[in-house]
Design a protein around this nucleic acid. Structure first.
Lengths: 128, 128
DNA sequence: TCAGTCACTTGCGTTTCGCAAGTTATGGTA
DNA sequence: TACCATAACTTGCGAAACGCAAGTGACTGA
């Protein structure tokens, strides 16, 4: 099984086209994925933290998006404790690279949706 | 009927939250809307021009998106000829304001999807 | 032993998507 | 005046995605 934009007999094969915007939309083009990224940028790491954001993402949608983000290399999952095992999610360098995109969206959004406000970073307890 | 983020008894009412990113996604968060904006930025104006882009947007989806973009104030529609009447679509100032968002997406997209390339502007015959 | 937490998974009805075909209005050609 | 073509949509309908609610399994602390 080939991924999107992978080499195939010397010719690139894209899902829809060779436009960078199109390919970004094939990964991030829905109402939830970029909000998960936003939460990660704000410092959230755990499943329950994502579900407790004000948009109230459904549990199955969140699981699906985290899986896809991992597959796309934007996010890594790893256990931060055993007994019982608990996982946390972190942005990869590729994922961090989306910050300028989020910035541009926030600038435009704050200007055109009166009353909206950038969300604050969240704090984290130090790991044991 | 109130739009998103409209005033209601002194308190803002947002569809999902007061996050600017969330509100932008409620307007642009799907696989097609931003591609229509891209085409407009590239100089496309007419229905058939949008349907002839390499992503091959379906006719009903295009009609739906153009309607929503007009409702959101990102695009204007006007007749450029009569007998028969023909329409063209143009970005408003609000719509033009999305250029930095598209730029940031292109930068990230070109970096992470090898083989993708920014599409060139299209030329237009002079009216009259 | 029994409620509670975390990180999910499953069921299922509702909504949205998207391919294909049809519609309306008009102009050009023979 | 019949016929073909073009522009800008609209309609039908099967498939996919969404999202609410409930369930699961591993383990902790009381």
């Amino acid at each position: 099984m080939l991924g999107d934009g992978e080499q195939m007999g010397g010719k690139m094969k894209f899902k829809r086209s060779s436009c960078p915007i199109t390919n970004v939309l094939d990964t991030l083009g829905d109402k939830w994925t970029l909000l998960v990224i936003r939460d990660l940028v704000l410092g959230k790491r755990r499943y329950q933290e994502f579900t407790s954001s004000p948009e109230k993402i459904a549990s199955n949608i969140l699981a699906d998006r985290l899986k896809k983000l991992e597959t796309s290399g934007l996010v890594t999952r790893h256990a931060y404790q055993r007994n019982p095992v608990r996982y946390e999610y972190l942005l990869t360098e590729k994922g961090e690279g989306l910050k300028p995109v989020l910035e541009a969206i926030i600038v435009w959004g704050k200007k055109h949706y009166p009353g909206t406000k950038r969300f604050p970073r969240v704090a984290h307890a130090k790991e044991g």
